[in-house]
Nucleic acid binder design. Structure first.
Length: 625
RNA sequence: GCGGGCGUCGUUCAGCGGUAGAACGUCAGCCUUUCAAGCGGAAUGUCGGGAGUUCGAUCCUCCUCGCCCGCCCCA
């Protein structure tokens, strides 16, 4: 009996979309649960938009999420792309290629059979012609369907048809269209039930483009069949494509005459933004465009040209200052000549959007898995959260609550099609954040320290280097820009402990640790904090600070740790009769420049004796007057 | 316009014939050296609207409204 096979089939035109991640996760979980195989296939038939880099990125994103495919491409330790294929005794022939662009010969072979059965024909209309007809139909508020040419007879390979093929073979530019059947098509869906499409709904859609590549519809059907895919799980936006696929499956045959099988379909709900629009990569473009438009409306001197100039200047500056440390930070590699068209809404180029966002210092919505990674989300939190978008285990926790915290292993043993919902889900970022905070808190201090440090090294290199104790550029270069000291670096661990409980994301950890980066001689103290915590009550804070400073000086390097420092500060507070609070705040402002920092003992410990004392000293001198 | 799908607290989801539960968010409380976190609480829903079937409907039927998706030589 052939195994159950699911597949995730992204087109490599950018990073992995969060919705794609859910689809992949469900496909993976379903295959695992059923003892089947999970396949990855790359749909790169759009030569202009596809790139190998994107394919690689998507595979990496999936791997990061813990979604590992049994079949199809993977990245080898040496960085090259390899392929898992059906093994010789699996009962299935090897697939060979999992990139569609390399399978064109296969599609053409099947197309040949469709031609001779009178179910496919070349069409010579130019793009402009069909576009004009479509526009006319829209203007007349009518449904556009490509009209089948009069000389085409459904299911017959007629002389007229042969005539068309002669023109095509002579090199005339053409597409190939599928002669759609005039019959009701029923899509059996595991989630939605039977979905019926009336006869005449479907027109003769294109199955091979003028460049010789198959369209999505054709490639999908051939691939799913020839690769052994048994279950197609995808988002509901594909539902209306399915009758086309079913019609194709019914029309297609193998060389030995056997028919195609129709896989089991399961369409899962769409993931929407909180405003109920579909969550898509275009949302980034929308946000960036809005920022630019707002700026231009406010200030007439801001134009596309001035923006390009400013952004170019910015990017060259960044490049020189980022030398050797730009690991993970996306270089401003946008083609800014696209900007005018971008602003008018004629393209949604992500690089342009990101460049604009950097220029206006706005945050683009997180849409792709990489965005979430960059902003400090943990893969387990993303998987858990995303799994709940359109599915739930229907189980209770021991104390009677709905079970909603689980890992991928749980999914692999509990996921089923029967509990997939039908309603579109809104992507509630607050809830994700809460899941992420819980995931972070569920980590041991050591594990958190390790992962936080890895993340910082990639996304906050300046911070990571500071904490690694590597300050000079020469040291950096010596290790190729990626310095990793001992994995259990005590500074990292100390700071990690201090930061973990309050961090909802890994990036939060950096934010609340920003004081570490402060210059020991910095004199910019938050005025409000100074007023409240140092100068109020006749310089009470400063007095306490002086006392504390003297006592701290008495602590030597060896005993400079969170516990002893905390005890000492507490003592100072007691002796002064003020309690811990005022003393803490005074010191906090002195060492952090603001009224907020991680717990003081930890903060002082992480800073170290020398820096801590230097900062307090600076503070006292600055405010002495 | 045509086709398809969907409508349960603000949000994600349970419940599927006996007038609704959880989580996130919100609010106040406790704790507290700041900010958080944590803990224990509270509020929030005429189950989109109308009609029908039924002793009884969020759950079944019909109608209606709303929202979303698709209608590319994109996938």
């Amino acid at each position: 009996m052939p195994p159950l096979v699911t597949r995730f089939a992204p087109s490599p035109t950018g990073h992995l979309h969060i919705g794609g991640a859910r689809t992949a996760l469900f496909c993976w979980a379903f295959a695992k649960k059923s003892g089947g195989r999970f396949m990855l296939r790359i749909e790169d038939t759009d030569a202009a938009r596809s790139s190998l880099e994107s394919a690689r990125g998507i595979i990496e994103d999936l791997h990061w999420l813990g979604i590992v495919n049994d079949l199809g491409p993977f990245i080898k330790p040496d960085g090259t792309i390899g392929q898992h294929d059906w093994e010789p005794n699996s009962g299935r022939p090897p697939v060979g290629e999992y990139f569609q662009a390399r399978r064109v010969a296969i599609y053409n072979a099947y197309l040949e059979r469709l031609i001779t059965s009178g179910r496919a024909y070349p069409a010579f209309d130019t793009n402009e012609e069909t576009e004009k007809q479509r526009a006319a139909a829209v203007a007349a508020k009518q449904t556009y369907r490509y009209p089948r040419p009069a000389d085409i007879e459904f299911g017959k390979y007629t002389p007229a048809m042969q005539e068309r093929w002669k023109r095509a073979e002579a090199g005339e530019r053409h597409v190939v269209r599928f002669a759609a059947p005039n019959e009701e098509i029923v899509v059996h869906d595991e989630v939605l039930g039977d979905v019926r499409y009336a006869p005449g709904e479907m027109d003769d859609f294109v199955i091979r483009k003028a460049d010789g590549f198959p369209t999505y519809h054709f490639a999908v059907v051939i691939d799913d069949e020839t690769m052994g895919v048994t279950h197609v799980l995808r988002a509901q936006e594909h539902l209306n494509n399915t009758p086309r696929h079913v019609a194709l499956q019914k029309a297609l045959t193998h060389p030995d005459g056997t028919a195609f099988r129709i896989p089991l379909y399961a369409h899962m709900p769409i993931i929407c933004n909180m405003d109920a629009s579909k969550m898509s990569k275009r949302d980034k473009a929308k946000a960036a465009r809005k920022a630019a438009k707002d700026a231009m409306a406010k200030d007439k001197s801001v134009t596309a040209e001035s923006l390009i100039e400013a952004m170019n200047a910015q990017s060259s500056k960044q490049q020189s200052s980022n030398q050797g440390t730009s690991q993970g930070t996306s270089a401003v590699g946008a083609d800014l000549s696209l900007l005018p068209a971008f602003l008018s809404g004629d393209n949604d180029n992500v690089q342009v959007a990101e460049a604009l966002a950097a220029h206006f210092k706005i945050a683009l919505p997180e849409i792709e898995v990489w965005d979430f990674k960059k902003n400090g989300y943990l893969p387990e939190a993303i998987c858990n959260f995303v799994a709940l978008l359109g599915w739930n285990p229907g189980l209770k926790t021991p104390d009677g609550k709905d079970l909603e915290k689980f890992d991928n292993a749980f999914l692999a043993s509990h996921f089923g099609l029967d509990r997939i919902g039908k309603t579109a889900s809104k992507f509630d970022r607050n809830k994700l954040l809460s899941f992420n905070a819980d995931a972070i808190n569920g980590l041991s201090d050591e594990e958190f320290a390790k992962r936080w440090r890895e993340w910082c090294t990639e996304f906050e290199p300046a911070f990571a280097q500071k904490l690694d104790g590597v300050d000079s550029p020469s040291q950096r270069e010596g290790a190729g820009g990626r310095v990793l000291s001992s994995p259990s670096s005590p500074r990292w661990l100390a700071l990690a402990k201090a930061v973990k409980a309050r961090a909802k994301t890994l990036r939060d950890g950096v934010k609340s640790s920003a004081f570490v980066l402060r210059d020991d001689a910095a004199t910019d103290f938050d005025p409000a904090a100074v007023e409240k915590n140092l100068k109020a009550n006749n310089n009470q804070g400063l007095t306490l600070l002086r006392t504390a400073f003297e006592r701290l000086q008495g602590v030597d390097e060896a005993t400079w740790n969170a516990a002893t420092l905390h005890a000492l500060i507490e003592q100072v507070g007691q002796q002064a009769g003020t309690g811990l609070g005022p003393v803490s705040q005074a010191i906090r402002v002195a060492i952090a420049g603001a009224a907020v920092s991680p717990p003081l003992g930890e903060s002082l410990a992480v800073l170290g004796r020398r820096s801590s004392l230097a900062r307090i000293d600076t503070c006292q001198k600055t405010l002495a007057t």
